[in-house]
């Protein structure tokens, strides 16, 4: 039990503590390394509940690394090291007693490339549910699967081929299947790492629409390279450069009125 203690509020210019009571996740002063290579440098940022936080920045600046810190997926990398604290609902997710499996249950993730399991569409969605509740009734499971597919705007397209392999779907469908898979385990936060990078404009539009629906009930964090997308869907926007969070604030403000020169340059398409 740790206090959210935002004692450093207002200490830096990134807008931390704008609305502390509303933040689902608090990232406080984290730095991280892969081996000796520093990746994130003293990043602090709130993730507000029931809103979309967009993360932008040039390639290699550490956006994915940051995202993967939020569900401790970086634990898989042996050389990874982290300093600072990240709290989820006020609890330190890196605390030695913290249950990493539980953290990941609460913080779902959708990857840059669609990665459905080599199983049927149904099983893809049902997989996590079954694992979390092995005694679940068949009917109940089916309900969850259908509901998740509906929420992911995929139901109409796959309702006739639930037993087909997840890998037989189109790229956009696969990505929505992955979203449905995450929704099915009922997480509180959904992290998406460039979810549209391998998709066509139509699929991208569908997913953007979906994310806007999802933010009503979930906390969403999206990494994107597409500034238009960031503009269209983000409530809050963070700009990363070389491992540092250079600018953070309400999306509209960051875009129309950036405080930092670097942000302005990036938005103007001068680099990245």
């Amino acid at each position: 039990m740790q206090q959210t203690g935002i004692t450093g509020a207002g200490r830096n210019a990134t807008g931390i503590g704008n609305n502390p009571n509303n933040s689902k996740i608090m990232v406080q002063d984290i730095s991280s390394w892969y081996g000796a290579q520093p990746v994130l440098k003293e990043v602090s940022m709130p993730i507000h509940a029931k809103s979309i936080t967009g993360l932008i920045g040039p390639s290699g600046c550490g956006k994915s690394t940051f995202l993967r810190c939020l569900n401790r997926l970086n634990d898989l990398v042996r050389s990874f090291r982290l300093q600072g604290t990240i709290t989820l609902d006020g609890e330190d997710i890196y605390h030695p007693d913290a249950d990493v499996v539980l953290v990941r249950r609460k913080v779902g993730m959708v990857f840059q490339h669609p990665n459905p399991f080599p199983m049927s569409v149904f099983d893809n969605v049902a997989f996590g549910v079954r694992e979390h509740n092995r005694q679940i009734k068949k009917r109940e499971l089916e309900e969850i699967v259908v509901e998740s597919l509906q929420k992911a705007n995929l139901w109409e397209e796959v309702k006739d081929k639930l037993q087909a392999s997840g890998l037989s779907l189109s790229g956009g469908q696969q990505q929505r299947l992955c979203i449905a898979r995450v929704l099915a385990v009922m997480p509180e936060v959904i992290l998406l790492d460039e979810p549209c990078s391998s998709l066509d404009p139509v699929s991208t539009a569908k997913i953007e629409e979906l994310l806007l629906q999802l933010k009503n009930s979930y906390t969403v964090v999206v990494v994107t390279h597409n500034l238009g997308q960031a503009r269209r869907i983000s409530d809050y926007l963070g700009f990363f450069l070389d491992g540092r969070l250079v600018e953070y604030g309400a999306a509209a403000e960051v875009i129309t009125n950036p405080r930092e020169k670097a942000t302005e340059d990036y938005l103007a398409g001068n680099f990245g």
Partner: peptide, 25 residues
């Protein structure tokens, strides 16, 4: 790796990920 990560990210334990995802693949 993407299968393992997807499973772990769903909050499935490492052992269950091995049994249910990695071994079948």
């Amino acid at each position: 790796r993407r299968y393992k990560e997807a499973s772990l990210a769903l909050g499935v334990s490492h052992w269950r990920t091995i049994v249910k995802v990695m071994l079948p693949v």
